[in-house]
Amino acid sequence: MSADTPLQKEPESSQNPPVDGSELIRFDKVTKRFGSNVVLDNLDFSVDSGKHVTLIGPSGSGKTTILRLLMTLLKADEGTIKVNGDYLTHEEKNGKLVPAGEKHIREVRKNIGMVFQQFNLFPNMKVLRNLTEAPVTVLGMSKEAAEERARDLLELVGLTEHIDKYPTQLSGGQQQRVAIARALAMRPKVLLLDEVTSALDPELVAGVLDVLRDIARTTDITMLCVTHEMNFARDISDAVLMFDKGRVLESGPPEKIFGDPEHDRTREFLSAVL
């Protein structure tokens, strides 16, 4: 079953800043296969601007695939994805949808930032340059403006004193916080987070999650988050989507999904991870 839920913000999560509620991401009948393995099956879902949406579900259910499709690291076999009102990998020409050119894709993709499980910082650049490279060369910001923003962001993630270090001189948790700052430096409308704490030593997880909580609370950025940290998901999410076998099994506010899920499958999954 496909859930086509315009994930409404729950009134009780009032600590979040007001949002305009317009649709930022829409998957429309998206199918993705790897060979004969149908990973996403005719998937519909949407995320409203400013919302924090968490994807949960068993390993292999297609959560990473969704984020990678959005980041254009993968290409859908069927269906369309809209970001901020524009087709991500299609263009309308003479009333018909055709595959979009690289330029169009780049423009739409600028709305999206991503943080990876393995950080993927550029090891040949110091922390500062990791944060300024794209703003300067992609957005055309001046070096001074980009560096000032980089400093602000490093303060936000609590790493000001590491600005002149190389990534390998930092702990995993610090690297991941730099990676979060790097993604934010591009001022994306939506931040994709794929199990960003799974590669970390347990004692470093909290620091990264605190930074993300902070960002969720103080900015109006939209978040699409895959995580196994259920407490974190409960804290920050406006909506939780339970995935199973490439479909949305159920979705709703965290209190509902974690407290009183409709499906046994969800209950089983939650009891296994909690």
Binding site: M71, N120, F122, N124, A134, T137, V138
Partner: peptide, 26 residues
């Protein structure tokens, strides 16, 4: 590592910039 290409894509770095600033120096 493939993650370096992916990070470059995620930041919308151009092809030329990806080669010159990220891939070749490594």
């Amino acid at each position: 590592p493939a993650g370096q290409w992916e990070a470059a894509t995620a930041l919308s770095l151009s092809k030329g910039r990806t080669w010159r600033a990220v891939i070749l120096p490594q």
